[in-house]
């Protein structure tokens, strides 16, 4: 059976190691925080915070304390605040070990498209281009196919890129794929999903 959203997040959490500083994107990546278990992980929020805590209890919201999705959050004992230039300094400077984010398309060489669809409303790239260009490792968590059943893992991206050759690992509802030199490697399949099923659902070269 393919993984659901929570299982994809749980699988992504296995990629995190004790002591890592990590940036989680909006959507399924946010759920990864629920599965880090006993590992000592510090979450970065690119609007200027390390050590992001859970959502506040009702009545304890602080308008001065939000995450990059503009949601109210809380701080932890380890929390540090800083300005946006320093925040992206640590991102661009490679201090953040891993970014986990969603995507519309990923190519077989690790090109990533997740910020705009031509002809549709463009809201902007936010911090996505900085993150994928700067962090140590980029993990994409997304459905293997789009709502029409077409592969989101392509030979070449059709949408405008967020970054070129930036993705290291792709976790989909069907399995885990690594971006290699000549194409994607299947590292793992979801329970009762065969490698042939993954190949059949993938346009990108699998080697």
């Amino acid at each position: 059976m393919p993984w659901d959203r929570n299982q994809m997040a749980e699988r992504a959490a296995q990629e995190l190691e004790d002591g890592m500083y990590v940036n989680l994107g909006i959507g399924i990546p946010t759920l990864v925080a629920n599965y880090v278990g006993a590992k000592d992980i510090t979450l970065q929020s690119e609007n200027g915070m390390l050590g992001m805590g859970p959502f506040p209890f009702e009545g304890e919201e602080d308008p001065d304390l939000i995450n990059a999705g503009k949601q109210t959050i809380t701080e932890l004992k380890r929390t540090a605040y800083f300005d946006s230039a320093q925040s992206f300094g640590m991102i661009r400077g490679g201090k953040i070990a891993v970014a986990i984010l969603g995507a519309m398309e990923v190519s077989e060489v690790g090109d990533l498209a997740n910020w705009m669809i031509p002809g549709k409303l463009v809201k902007g790239m936010g911090g996505a281009m900085d993150l994928v260009a700067g962090v140590g490792r980029v993990i994409v968590v997304m459905d293997h196919t789009n709502k029409h059943g077409a592969s989101k893992l392509l030979k070449e991206c059709t949408l405008p890129l967020t970054g070129k050759g930036v993705v290291d690992l792709i976790i989909t509802n069907l399995g885990v794929l690594e971006v290699g030199h000549k194409g994607l490697h299947i590292l793992e399949a979801a329970p009762d999903v065969s490698r042939d099923e993954i190949r059949a659902a993938t346009e990108a070269a699998i080697v």
Partner: peptide, 8 residues
Amino acid sequence: IEQRTVQK
């Protein structure tokens, strides 16, 4: 506050 998000 733009996105008031809380937990019970």
